[in-house]
């Protein structure tokens, strides 16, 4: 993807390179056992097209930065918790040089601040490690095609962070610091476990429109000044 979370926020045209070429995936996780597990699952062939192949893997931030620069994968599956700064550090170091690489955070952590931190650092999506192989394959294809991947939990976190509680700081930039009604609806359905197609049916809009809304939510999550979002990140010196 040539797309970065640019202010316009529209997803890049899907499959800008060759849509049928296999998607090359790079695994970053400090647990060798988990890496080999994911690798085996992805190599065994996850049904669907295009195919997914594991191009390489890394167990530390240094290895990951070097490996991604060398192998130029399409998608990086990124662990959130690692020594030396974790997933956010990898994002911080790789993204300026290789904006075309797409990151999908894959983490065992359930903590909102961890998840929001990698999303804000530039990951295109977040899924938990308990995800099934088929769903993981779908998620990889979807981020590769330019669409963000929101697990229900992530949708919940984002809704929570953008919710207007009594006493919340007023929005500085309404364009970025508030979700539109439609975006909120889409997020709610995502949090309820709906697939994009089901959301489209429920709200009487097209799947493409759902994708646009989700992209715009992702962009707002990454760029918004909302206190809750900034605080999580800045508390941990991630921004």
């Amino acid at each position: 993807m040539t797309e970065t979370p640019a202010p316009e926020g529209t997803p890049a045209p899907a499959g800008a390179p060759d849509p049928d070429a296999p998607i090359r995936v790079f695994l970053v996780d400090d647990h060798g056992l988990f890496r080999s597990g994911v690798r085996a699952e992805l190599d065994r062939g996850v049904a669907g097209s295009p195919e997914i192949e594991v191009a390489g893997e890394a167990g530390s931030v240094e290895e990951a930065v070097a490996g991604i620069a060398h192998l130029r994968p399409d998608v990086v599956l990124l662990d959130v918790h690692m020594p030396d700064g974790g997933g956010a550090e990898v994002l911080r170091r790789v993204r300026p040089n290789q904006p075309e690489v797409v990151f999908l955070a894959l983490s065992v952590s359930d903590a909102a601040e961890d998840v929001i931190a990698v999303i804000r650092a530039g990951a295109r999506g977040y899924v938990t490690k308990t995800i099934s192989a088929t769903e993981l394959g779908d998620a990889v294809r979807r981020v590769r095609a330019g669409d963000p991947v929101f697990s229900p939990r992530l949708a919940g976190f984002v809704l929570d962070a953008f919710s207007d509680r009594p006493g919340a700081a007023p929005a500085v930039d309404p364009e970025l610091d508030l979700l539109t009604r439609r975006e909120r609806d889409v997020l709610r359905l995502l949090a309820r476990g709906y697939a994009y197609k089901e959301i489209a049916g429920e709200l009487f809009i097209s799947v493409k429109t759902v994708e646009t809304h989700v992209s715009s939510v992702l962009r707002k999550t990454q760029l918004s000044n909302r206190y809750e979002l900034s605080r999580w990140a800045s508390d941990r010196r991630l921004v």
Partner: peptide, 9 residues
Amino acid sequence: ITVNPVFVG
């Protein structure tokens, strides 16, 4: 089975 609760608020 697996139950995945998501809370907002």
